[in-house]
Design a protein around this nucleic acid. Structure first.
Lengths: 233, 233
DNA sequence: TTCTATACATAACC
DNA sequence: GGTTATGTATAGAA
C-alpha cells in the first residue's frame, strides 16, 4: 500500500475508522454520537457475557445529558431495578417523570409492581420502625453500637450509613426474590428500553420466560457501592 | 488463506479467533476464561465511554462463581451514589466530593489506612460475634429479629442475608468514603487489576499494588462474602 | 498469562 | 440509521 504522504497533509478520503485518543470529546455532537454507539456496544457486550458465561450483569449509564440507561440481566441483579425504577425519590428531584415513551417494542410492565410496592411498603415500615427505635436508643446497648466505639468520624459515618442501608438491603432482597420469579431479561431505563434479542443473542426475552430460580436463590448481589454476594442455598 | 478442509477433520492450526455462537459455554474452564477476558473488556469499554463522553457508568458483574466485580465512576455525581446507595442520607454523609472536572487530581492525604484496617478487623470481629450471637439466639429478642416477623421464609432469609452482609457493607462504605476522599480513582480487586494506561487511555497510572489513580475512573472490584481487601495506597 | 488470526466494534461520512 | 475502512477485542491454543 502506498499511503503516500504519511505526515498529515490532507485528511481527505479517510472513510473508515480512525484511531482515536481516549480523551473527552469536546464537541457535543460527535460526543453524543459516540456515546450512543458505544453504549449500545457496551450493552451488547454485557449481554453476550451473560449468555456465554452465565454471569449476571447490571449496568447503569448516565449520559452527560442526564439520561440514565440501564442494562440488567434476567434473573440477576434485581436490585438494580429498584434503582432504575426510581425508588430513591431523592435521586432526582424530579425523578422520572418520563416524558417520552420507552422506545422499544416492549413496554409491558415486567413486574408486579403493585404487589411489590405493597411488600415494599410493609417491609419498609417495619424496618423504619426498627431504625427509629435504634435511633431512640442512641448510644448504649445494642450490638450495633459496639463496633462504633473507637471509630473515627468517617468510620462512624460509614458505619451508620451501612446501618441505614439495611432497610434497603432487605427491600432489595425482597425485591429480588420477587422479581426472580418473574425473570426474563430486560433493559430498563429512565428513558429507554433496549431489546435483548434484537441481535442474535439468544437470551431470554423480556417477557416472562422461565423461572430461573424458584427453588434456591443461587445468587444475590448487593448493589450499593459495593457488593456482596452470597450463594444462598 | 487456504483453510483447506472446512468441515472438521483436523482442527489443528486454527489459531486465531473463531466465530462463536452466543450460547452458554458449558465447559467451566473455557467459560471462566471467557468470563475473565470479557469482563476485562467490558470494563475497559466502560472506562473509555466515561472518558470520551463524560458519561457516568456503574457496572456490577457477578460471575457464576459468585464473585462480584464492579466498575464505577468515582467522584462522579451523586447520581450514582444515590442509585447505588440508598437515600440522600448517604449523599449527605459523604457531603462534598468535588465534581471537579479534571478528575486526575488526587492530592489529598490518604485516609489512615491502617486505622481503617484496624477498624475493619475490629468491626469484622464484632459483627461476626454478633452474627454468632444471633445464631445462638435464633428468634427471640433483638431488634433485628422483629422485622422478621411476618416475613415469609424467603424474606426471612433475605433479611438474614442482609444482616450477614452488614459487615461487608460497612467495609464497603468506608472503603468508598475513603476513595471518594481521595478523589482519585483506583482499582481494587480481590484478584484482578486492570491497567488503565497500558493502552492509550489517557489516565494516570496506578502503581503496582493496585491502588491507584486512574483519571477519574474507578474500578472497584469487590469480593463477595469474602472480605474486602484494602490495599494501602 | 501470552500469542495469533479473526470476528467484531466503531470513527468518519452519508 | 446505514456504509466502509480500520482499530480492537478475543477464541483457541500453548
Amino acid at each position: 500500500m502506498v499511503m503516500s504522504d504519511v505526515a498529515g497533509d490532507n485528511k481527505k478520503r479517510i472513510k473508515g475508522k480512525q484511531k482515536i485518543k481516549i480523551k473527552k470529546i469536546e464537541d457535543p455532537n460527535p460526543r453524543q454520537v459516540t456515546f450512543s454507539k458505544r453504549r449500545t456496544g457496551l450493552f451488547k457486550k454485557a449481554a453476550e457475557i451473560c449468555v456465554l458465561t452465565g454471569a449476571q450483569i447490571a449496568i447503569l449509564v448516565s449520559s452527560p445529558s442526564g439520561r440514565v440507561y440501564a442494562f440488567r440481566h434476567p434473573n440477576s441483579d434485581v436490585l438494580f431495578d429498584r434503582y432504575l425504577n426510581n425508588d430513591n425519590k431523592v435521586a432526582t428531584a424530579t425523578n422520572h417523570t418520563e416524558p417520552e415513551t420507552a422506545s422499544t417494542e416492549n413496554n409491558q410492565p415486567p413486574l408486579p409492581i403493585n404487589e411489590f410496592n405493597q411488600h415494599y411498603v410493609e417491609v419498609s415500615r417495619q424496618v423504619e420502625a426498627e431504625k427509629k427505635r435504634r435511633e431512640t436508643i442512641p448510644a448504649s446497648s445494642g450490638w450495633y453500637n459496639e463496633p462504633v466505639n473507637g471509630l473515627n468520624a468517617e468510620e462512624l459515618q460509614a458505619y451508620l450509613c451501612s446501618l441505614g442501608e439495611l432497610k434497603n438491603k432487605v427491600l432489595t432482597r425482597a425485591d429480588e426474590l420477587m422479581m426472580i420469579n418473574k425473570s426474563g431479561a430486560f433493559f430498563s431505563s429512565n428513558a429507554y428500553d433496549i431489546g435483548w434479542n434484537e441481535n442474535n443473542i439468544n437470551a431470554p426475552a423480556f417477557v416472562s420466560t422461565n423461572t430461573a430460580v424458584a427453588g434456591g436463590l443461587n445468587f444475590h448481589s448487593k448493589i450499593d457501592n459495593a457488593t456482596a454476594t452470597f450463594d444462598a442455598v
